[in-house]
Nucleic acid binder design. Structure first.
Lengths: 345, 345
DNA sequence: GAACTCAGTGAGAGCGCTCTCGACGACGTG
DNA sequence: CACGTCGTCGAGAGCGCTCTCACTGAGTTC
């Protein structure tokens, strides 16, 4: 039960096939420029010996790793545990699989960890990185740009300076928010409030902007900043009801918040959607479907976001290898959202 | 914007510090057997040059990778997206970080993917693997044992044969189930039903066993197999109510199922917990806290499970390196569960 | 038929590191 | 003072692979 018996090397394959190591290598890497009979012999040798290339040896010379890092900086367990990341990872994984790349997952806990991640990335262990930086004041994106690793961000990073735009993939938070509010308006609602998310995150800012796009002349007191949590949603809803007892529509920054709001509305005797129509954002299934009444919300295709991030990064890496220009590689992709009608609005 | 300027090598560090490559290497790897002044000089050279060891070169000779694979085989997006895996990953990540190991995430989609994962694992790219095999008929565990990679499983794998027991970490599903049912009994409930999970998963089987431990002489019709989903919970609850309209307690195999059951109970005019007490399993926060009434449930420490899996694996790897016996490394760890009282029971 | 291609192949260098081994001086020991 | 011992260090041999380059022989070209 010690080590598995020593794995066969390219040398062994070459010997068995009666060719040089160079030729064996060519076959293993696609077989271009090798005559058919030899290709066949090498292939057979590979099968018989169960040969698998030693990635370390390969990387050592090619300086490629066929691996990319996924950095998730989210100290709060609560947020990390939502289905969001799982779906993104899934999307990323699918795309990477197609390209025979591996996914190295880097989760950070607190600030000290940033150095570790920075070091790892700068260490050139991976070909590129996909980074989820949720907070505006997060030093991580800077660190990473410094590390000189090709990077694609998940969600629009919130930089004030106009450095050569970061590449990112995001949902159309602003457009989705507009759609949500317009839906409420279409329902005949006129006194519409917004429970905003934590405004140190671009998604929250964008959704708020979308709200304002439609409700340009809304009473500023109809907007309360919250924190994307159910408890925060409850607090915000109470506050809003106190301020404007006659509100008839609520656009919550996410489903969790909406769930909290729903509870307070019921507690205060408001019927949903008759008295107050409520709409969320995310379409987080386990939540949106379980609320009472089920939540009307804005869906974003999380998995597709992940897939796109990976695709964008891989394309970039490919470019830098082949030396071609970055012509048709977009710097940012914004995915559309869709309205999902359930019962709450 | 091409490649970052060539990274410094050990050779460069050695030159700058005025020592041999061997000595530089010693310092980088802990500095044992090198006199203080030299250690200092090398350390400074490392800092000045920003040297980071090339992992590929290192692996090539040590045959260690300081990386472990986490294999999650879960075709159904729904299940994968629950907070479960996120928390486990977090626990695993924390432990690996401490040991300077990387986490390579392997997600599988459908059967074809198993071969890919098997190949990767057999390829010796990682030192070990943490595998989540949820289903009894999953061929993956077998494949992996075949690959000869040290492995720790998440959740008890369901093998019938008595092969040298797989190493695994699991929650005390059976004990937790007993506690849940006893709680209902303690509440004075006598006609207690169980909505079981998908019985091709050991966790579901174990929880059912726990139920039976306490309700040895229960009417077999008080148990319905379901599938861990809310919709399944609804169906099962209807079935149960039809069979035994006078039941006064329900132990659901997980919180999602319980949430579905709760809805049906309300729909049928049963008050919870007055008429029927309901208890779940998992303490999946976003669900358990949001149900109406909030769900009493059995909590398992998911993150700790992840951490333990990693710790167990690393210890094992350490053993096989140092050649020591596997004496005090347990083959299985079962974590305790705790009852979380909310309003539903 | 000599000179020239050119696809196909093998020899060999070297990627950056670890680790063994031998050299060397400082230190006891008889 | 000769000898062994020990701690410290450098030289050098690879780890398994890719890739350049030179070589071969068959196919052109004039």
């Amino acid at each position: 039960m010690t080590e598995t018996t020593a794995r066969p090397t390219l040398e062994a394959v070459a010997a068995r096939a009666g060719v040089s190591r160079a030729t064996a290598s060519r076959v293993v890497n696609g077989g271009d420029g090798v005559r058919e009979p030899l290709v066949e012999r090498v292939r057979r040798a590979v099968d018989e010996l169960g040969y698998v290339p030693n990635q370390a040896a390969r990387s050592l010379v090619t300086k490629r790793h066929d691996a990319i890092a996924v950095v998730i900086a989210e100290p709060e367990t609560r947020v990390f545990a939502d289905p969001f990341f799982a779906l993104q990872l899934r999307g990323i994984s699918k795309e990477l699989t197609v390209h025979d790349s591996q996914l190295v997952l880097l989760l950070t806990e607190g600030r000290d960890d940033h150095a570790r991640v920075g070091r790892y990335l700068a260490g050139g262990h991976v070909d590129g990185a996909l980074v989820f930086s949720l907070h505006l004041d997060d030093p991580l994106p800077g660190l990473i740009q410094g590390a000189g690793v090709p990077t694609v961000f998940g969600g629009r990073p919130g930089w004030s300076d106009g450095t050569p735009g970061p590449v990112y993939v995001d949902s159309d938070n602003r457009g989705g928010a507009r759609e949500a509010v317009r839906h409420l308006v279409g329902l005949g609602r006129t006194r519409i409030a917004h429970i905003a998310g934590a405004l140190d995150q671009t998604s929250a800012v964008d959704r708020l902007d979308g709200f304002r796009d439609v409700m340009a002349d809304a009473d500023p007191r109809m907007v309360v900043e919250s924190d994307f949590t159910p408890a925060g949603g409850e607090r915000a809803m109470r506050e809003l009801l106190d301020r404007c007892p006659d509100l008839d529509g609520v656009f919550a920054a996410n489903d969790l918040t909406a769930a909290g709001a729903l509870r307070v509305l019921r507690e205060r005797g408001r019927r949903v959607p008759e008295d107050v129509a409520v709409i969320g954002f995310d379409d987080m299934l386990p939540v949106a479907e379980q609320t009472d009444p089920p939540l009307t919300t804005i869906r974003q295709d999380i998995e597709e976001m992940g897939r796109l991030m990976a695709r964008l990064l891989l394309r970039r890496l490919d470019r830098s290898t082949t030396g071609r220009a970055d012509a048709d590689t977009p710097a940012a992709v914004v995915l559309p959202t869709t309205l999902v009608r359930r019962a709450s609005a």
